[in-house]
C-alpha cells in the first residue's frame, strides 16, 4: 500500500471539477475538431444512454407528473380539476404534517450521529490488531442482509415482550412497560432499531476508508511522538473525512425516508407520535389523497435537495482540505 488514497481521491475530485469546467480533455481521448474544441467519442454517450432512459422513465417522468398533479384534485384516476395552490396551503395548515416533519428530522439527526459514532468506533476497532478480526467483521455485517421489515418485527417482539419480561424479572421499573406503548419514548425504540440496521453499511465504508490510510503516516506520527489519541484525532479522522461526508449524507437521506421500520414497530403510534413524513405521504395513495400528498412530497423533495446541497457545501471544504 504505497499509494496514498485520500490525497488521490482529493485529486480525483479536482479532476472532476476541472472536467466540469471544460479544462480537461481526459475523457475526450485527446482528439480535437478543426476549431480546436475537444471531440468526445460518441461511445461515452452510449454508456450514458441506458441509465438516462431508465432514470427518466422510472424517476423523472413520475416525479414531474406527481408535481403536476399536486396542483389538481386528482385522486389517482378519473376526472380532475386544477385547484391551484389549495393543496399547498392545506399542507402548511396541517398540524399532522408539521409534527411529521419535526419527528422525521429529529429522528434523522439523532440516528445519523449515533450510527456514525458507533460505526466509526467499530471500524477503528476492527481495523486495529485484534484477535478474530475477520469473523467479527462478518458478524457485524449480518444486519445488512436482513430486510428492514423483518428487523422491525423482531425488535417489536423484543420491545413489547422480552424487555418487559426482563424488567419484571429483575425488578427494573423502567423496562416493565413496553417503550413502544409510550408516546414520549417510542421514538427511542425506532432510533435503536434503525441504528442496529444501518451501522453495518456505514461500518463497511469506514473500514474501507481506514484501510486506505497508508501505514507510513502512522509511522511518521509515531516518530513525532504522537499518542494514540492524537493519532486518532489528528491523523485518522482528517484522512477519512471524505468518508464521513459520504456516510452522513447517505445516512441522513435514508433516515429522512424512514418507513418500513416504523410500520413494523409502531405503525406511527402510539397515537401519531412516530408518524414519519414518508408514512404520511404514502397514505395519499391508499387513502385517495394523491394530489394533496403529492404537494407534501414536492415540499419534502425541495427540503431534501436543499439539505443535500447545504451538507455538500459545508462538508466539501473540510474534505478537500484533508
Amino acid at each position: 500500500m504505497t499509494t496514498p488514497i485520500a490525497p488521490a481521491s482529493a485529486a480525483a475530485g479536482r479532476l472532476v471539477d476541472a472536467a466540469e469546467h471544460g479544462q480537461s480533455d481526459h475523457l475526450a481521448g485527446g482528439r480535437h475538431d478543426k476549431k480546436g474544441r475537444s471531440r468526445v467519442d460518441p461511445v461515452y454517450y452510449a454508456f450514458l444512454l441506458p441509465t438516462l432512459i431508465l432514470f427518466t422513465l422510472a424517476i423523472t417522468v413520475p416525479a414531474v407528473l406527481g408535481i403536476f398533479y399536486s396542483f389538481t384534485n386528482f385522486i389517482g384516476f378519473g376526472d380532475w380539476q386544477f385547484t391551484g395552490l389549495t393543496n399547498y396551503i392545506a399542507v402548511f395548515q396541517d398540524p399532522a404534517v408539521l409534527s411529521g416533519y419535526l419527528f422525521t428530522f429529529g429522528f434523522a439527526i439523532v440516528t445519523v450521529v449515533l450510527v456514525n459514532v458507533i460505526a466509526f468506533m467499530l471500524a477503528v476497532a476492527l481495523t486495529s490488531r485484534i484477535r478474530l478480526k475477520v469473523p467479527l467483521r462478518a458478524i457485524f455485517v449480518i444486519p445488512m442482509v436482513i430486510s428492514g421489515i423483518v428487523i422491525a418485527y423482531v425488535f417489536q417482539f423484543l420491545f413489547s415482550n422480552s424487555l418487559p419480561a426482563l424488567g419484571n424479572g429483575l425488578g427494573i421499573p423502567l423496562l416493565q412497560e413496553s417503550i413502544l406503548a409510550n408516546p414520549d419514548l417510542a421514538w427511542i425504540a425506532i432510533v435503536i432499531t434503525a441504528t442496529w440496521q444501518s451501522v453495518p453499511g456505514t461500518l463497511l465504508i469506514y473500514i474501507a476508508g481506514l484501510l486506505s490510510i497508508p501505514g507510513e503516516v502512522y509511522e511518521a506520527a509515531d516518530i513525532d511522538g504522537a499518542t494514540a489519541r492524537e493519532k486518532l484525532f489528528r491523523v485518522t479522522l482528517p484522512l477519512v473525512a471524505g468518508y464521513v461526508v459520504i456516510n452522513v449524507i447517505l445516512g441522513f437521506k435514508n433516515y429522512l425516508n424512514v418507513y418500513d421500520i416504523i410500520v413494523g414497530l409502531t405503525n406511527g403510534g402510539p397515537g401519531t407520535a412516530t408518524r414519519s413524513i414518508a408514512m404520511t405521504i404514502f397514505t395519499g395513495f391508499t387513502g385517495g389523497d394523491y394530489a394533496y400528498q403529492m404537494a407534501n412530497a414536492t415540499i419534502f423533495f425541495i427540503i431534501a435537495v436543499a439539505i443535500s446541497i447545504l451538507q455538500l457545501r459545508l462538508t466539501r471544504n473540510r474534505a478537500a482540505s484533508a
Binding site: 405503525n267 402510539p270 397515537g271 385517495g288
Partner: peptide, 17 residues
C-alpha cells in the same frame, strides 16, 4: 373517515391517553 386522516391512531390515543 377517509384513510388519509389517521383516525385509528387518534382512537389509539383516545384509549391510552
Amino acid at each position: 373517515i377517509p384513510l388519509t386522516i389517521p383516525v385509528d391512531n387518534y382512537i389509539q390515543s383516545m384509549a391510552t391517553g
